[in-house]
């Protein structure tokens, strides 16, 4: 047990050291590439190589200088707001659609070809079209996330419905459940874990996509911020941005996983 714990701590630290090594090597080869030390200072504040006092990006994440210059917290918040707006609309539309496709052969035949065709389209391909429709950065970002999130939700919801054992449906038939009772009492309990798997996938992809979408739309958001810092020649901030995107994405997945487990009857009362 103790050995296992030691391995869990020591091995990632070794990999971390190796990463820092590779990073330092790249910094020594590529001109002007931020070093690990200078990136640390850019993140948390201190005195940089030129002797200037630097306020770190993470030291003051809440500042608002003006509408175009806000702290990193506001950038992340703006991105999260867009992701969740699009994501929630996708759930509202996707789950009923998935239930239909899963329950009715007709609905399956009707929708399946289009789901199969649109699912592999990169959400960013929709972006110019959506920008043209909405002429608004925020709406465009949200609707891009909607188009991103909806496919895994539909597909996994339908999969969950098809996973309902015919035996359970026979029980529903003998008891003469109405269609709504059938959905509520038999189909949803089976399908919910699948729906949450779909939602977890969706949210992961949405977080990937928002960064790229914001680079294209501009304005505010963590994706735009990274691109903006590139234009400002603040290369340190790009690296900080990457790490922040990673950490936030990891946390989103972790929370989504916990919520999914909570609604999964197979994991209730165990642990």
């Amino acid at each position: 047990m103790k050995y296992e714990l030691a391995r869990k701590i020591v091995l990632p630290m070794l990999v971390f050291a190796a990463l820092i090594g590779v990073w330092s090597f790249i910094a020594s080869v590529v001109e002007n590439f931020p070093t690990p030390t200078s990136t640390y200072i850019a993140a948390f504040g201190g005195v940089d190589a030129d002797g200037n006092e630097v306020t770190g990006v993470l030291a003051d994440p809440f500042y608002i200088a003006n509408d175009d210059d806000k702290g990193i917290f506001w950038q992340i918040l703006a991105s999260l707001e867009r992701v969740f707006s699009g994501f929630i609309i996708a759930i509202i539309v996707g789950v009923p659609l998935g239930l239909m496709v899963g329950m009715s052969k007709s609905a399956q035949y009707a929708f399946d070809p289009f789901i199969q065709i649109f699912k592999p389209v990169s959400p960013l391909a929709w972006l110019p079209l959506l920008l043209f429709i909405f002429q608004d950065i925020n709406m465009t970002a949200i609707s891009t996330i909607f188009v991103t999130s909806i496919w895994p939700i539909i597909v996994n919801t339908a999969l969950g419905v098809r996973n309902v054992s015919p035996d359970y449906l026979n029980v529903a038939k003998v008891l003469q459940f109405t269609p709504i009772e059938k959905v509520r009492k038999i189909i949803l309990p089976v399908a919910v874990p699948f729906i949450f798997t779909g939602m977890r996938l969706s949210l992961g992809i949405a977080w990937l996509v928002i960064v790229a979408a914001e680079m294209l739309t501009g304005g505010i958001g963590i994706g735009f911020w990274i691109w903006d810092e590139y234009n400002n020649l603040n290369y340190h901030h790009i690296i900080i941005g990457i790490i922040i995107v990673g950490v936030v994405g990891f946390l989103l997945d972790l929370i989504m996983g916990k919520i999914a487990d909570y609604f999964d009857y197979r994991k209730k009362g165990r642990a």
């Binding site: 035996d167 359970y168 026979n170 029980v171 003998v174 008891l175 003469q176 009492k185 197979r266 209730k268």
Partner: peptide, 30 residues
């Protein structure tokens, strides 16, 4: 099908997310 002809299935067909009590309750309630 109808509840005047109740079926005991070979594989019991209990709903796995409901307790023993709830499985029976669900049927009686309906």
């Amino acid at each position: 099908p109808g509840p005047d002809r109740a079926v005991v299935f070979q594989n019991h067909s209990l709903l796995p997310w409901l307790t023993v009590y709830q499985n029976i309750e669900m049927a009686v309630k309906k």
